[in-house]
Amino acid sequence: MPDRLKVLSLSTYTMGHITHQNILEQTFREQIPEVELVALHLPNHFKQDLAGRILYRLMTPRVPLLERSDADFYRLRNQLALSLYARRCLDRALAVYSPDVLHIHTQSIALLAESIMSRIPTVVSLDYTTALLATEHPAPAGVTYRPIVGLERRCFQVAAHVVACSDRARQSVLRDYGLAPDRVSTIHWSLPLERFNWPLRTAPIGPKPRLLFVGNDFVRKGGEDVLAVWLAHLAERSELDIVSNSPIPLPDRPDLRHHQGIGPLSPELLQLYQQADIFVMPTYEEVYGMVFIEATAAGLPCVGTTVMAVPELVQSGRNGFTIAPGDRQTLTQVLRQLIDQPELRHTMGLAGRAIAQEKFNAIHNFRRLADLFAQIRQERQIHG
């Protein structure tokens, strides 16, 4: 293909970022052939670089008694170590490949790539900013995170463009880092919606509606609240499926099921979404929440919390409800309302499907990213 745009994409490739990156790569490969996207997954190169692993270990020891509050500056040291390793990874890749545009996800591994970004126009994508985390995490985060904010500011200023996955993160880049609005875009994380294209049901598949919780970090994602509320108030009128690799002591009953070892977007997970009637994850901390997008695409009313960017995904009163984290009384009320009102579940499910088409369509969103890559290459060709 003549004049094919060449993009080198380096991803942190951990936790929810794995799902995002896999969908991005598949979409470019199958739907956007005019872009040659060469992907680097940082953990894969980490396994092959003994010197890099040694450097990482030397830079990231934990300090007993200080680690829980980050008073040992672990977050700063960890991000510098990852950025140093990412720099080594990029140097090796650029020795044999010459991209038109560099894409780094996220800024946490781009803190030491300033000289490369000055030479090759770079798009930095992110799910959140440390400036936001510094205001939301307990002290002394406001102090220990401050050096990271300074490093991120330099990174964003050198980048050709910054892409945030939420409006909340974009506003932080504008407000806290001083970038001009035309240099920062919001492109939501996305899904291949055709994999969720089953008909919506107006009635449960069994005698009672099924609640679905998905979250490996069971405590942080509010799993204990869901389980306690369900056992105390909702077990007689609903069933509960828990997808989590955490060890969870559960009573032995047929309407309470614990699923382990289920991968992102696997056939098993998609089947659970299709069988469910309500999705619930009253998380205490969630910078984004890919599972809310999945549940929305599946046509499930969602119950989330008011933390971080979750209200952008769960629009309270439209495709679900958001509550304060830890508010078990309100959690009980909204779940009971959804359990008892099938017409409300159906209405919110339809609204969720519409939101997914508007905001979370992988083909549409990654086409926008491809257009951004092309624009950046063109600007570099014109201005040098």
Rank of each mutant, 00 (worst) to 15 (best):
P251H: 06
S238H: 05
L272H: 02
P267E: 02
G263F: 12
P267N: 01
P267G: 10
L231H: 01
L265E: 11
L256G: 12
W230F: 15
L270I: 13
E239P: 05
Y273S: 04
R257D: 04
L231F: 04
Q260A: 05
V229C: 15
D252P: 08
S244D: 04
S246D: 14
L250F: 10
L231P: 00
L272M: 08
D252T: 14
H233F: 10
P249E: 15
P267F: 03
L234I: 07
L240F: 12
V229I: 13
R257V: 12
A235T: 09
V229H: 09
Y273D: 03
P254A: 03
H259L: 06
L272W: 06
S246G: 12
L234D: 06
A232E: 15
A232K: 13
L240P: 12
S244N: 06
P254W: 02
G261Y: 11
S246R: 01
I248V: 13
Y273K: 00
V229G: 10
N245F: 01
R237D: 10
H259T: 06
I262S: 01
I248K: 09
R257Q: 12
I262K: 05
P264F: 14
L256K: 01
E239M: 08
I242A: 06
R237N: 09
P267M: 04
S246W: 06
V229P: 05
L270G: 07
P247N: 04
R257C: 12
L265K: 02
D255P: 00
S238T: 03
L272Y: 02
W230R: 03
L250E: 10
R253P: 09
L250M: 07
G263M: 12
L234G: 11
G263A: 14
R237I: 12
L240D: 12
L231C: 07
Q260W: 00
V243E: 10
V243Y: 00
V229N: 13
P254C: 11
L240W: 05
L240Q: 01
R257L: 07
D252S: 15
